[in-house]
Design a protein around this nucleic acid. Structure first.
Lengths: 143, 143
DNA sequence: CTTTGACCTGTGAGTAGCTCACAGGTTTTA
DNA sequence: TAAAACCTGTGAGCTACTCACAGGTCAAAG
């Protein structure tokens, strides 16, 4: 298979195929006639695997590690479980953080309803922002 | 004020001060003796403003625009309200997306409880991932 | 058989918002 | 007076792609 064929087979951008190849996730051979990359069914499996793993939140280095373990005939599954658990924890942290942010934002919005716009006066730029955490006293210590 | 002093005043990394200066958010003068950047109270206000706006999810270009409007003696507040509303919408979309992801992840995790690890056999790399969306039939079409 | 268009190649830049590293100049402290 | 701490600008690194570029290759149409 050539780049575009592989890309279509996994429904990704051909540039992504090239990128993954550069990154060492795919290891095509070469057609000695024209120097084109030659991918096979195994590469298609790897690419599809990589895409699914990405959707599950694995990073490219993690995916590369998993593929390398599989290449060495070790089961990558224990590692997959492990990394996956960590990712889940992190996703939950991100959700909590965003919900916190949304809370602060809606609080700020409703506090702003009552506030006039005002022009910059050399001391303040826009009161809405400069005083938003007083209006929404939920301390947003990020991270 | 010099870079580090301003940075401490707003509790940011000195490199962030330099970066914001490069980006045109801060406009220090120069000390002709040694060519050092000279910041004043106005810059401190701008920097603090920028940091608060970042916490609220404004991008640097947006913040620059707001500051420029204020420099022109126009009230930036209507724009602030507008961009802010958009950001809130986006934050809510991000939350929904992450919750969707978490749902898929927890579904996958519980499906994996029952599955053995297995070694790569030339057809599969790690069943956990390759079959995860069959186990968790919630189609995750990522936008 | 030649042209045209679609494909291939590698490389480098762009995305956001910093953060860090580097090499060299200045100021402060011991 | 010398070391430590700061300043300067510039450039790279982080993520996971995506796109642009210049030049080589190949299939079908004229």
């Amino acid at each position: 298979m050539k780049v575009k064929e592989l890309a279509m087979g996994a429904e990704v951008n051909p540039d992504t195929v090239r990128f993954y190849t550069r990154e060492g996730l795919l290891k095509p051979t070469r057609n000695p006639d024209n120097n084109y990359q030659q991918y096979d069914a195994e590469d298609l499996r790897r690419l599809r695997f990589a895409r699914k793993a990405r959707q599950l939140g694995f990073s490219l280095p993690e995916i590369r590690q998993i593929l390398e373990q599989a290449d060495d005939h070790h089961s990558p599954c224990p590692m997959v479980r492990d990394v996956f658990q960590q990712r889940l924890t992190e996703v939950e942290r991100e959700i909590a953080e965003l919900q916190q942010l949304r809370k602060r934002m809606t609080a700020a919005l409703s506090a702003w309803q009552a506030m006039p716009d005002g022009s910059p006066d050399g001391h303040t730029i826009c009161r809405l922002i400069e005083h938003w955490d007083e209006a929404a006293p939920d301390k947003g210590k990020k991270e």
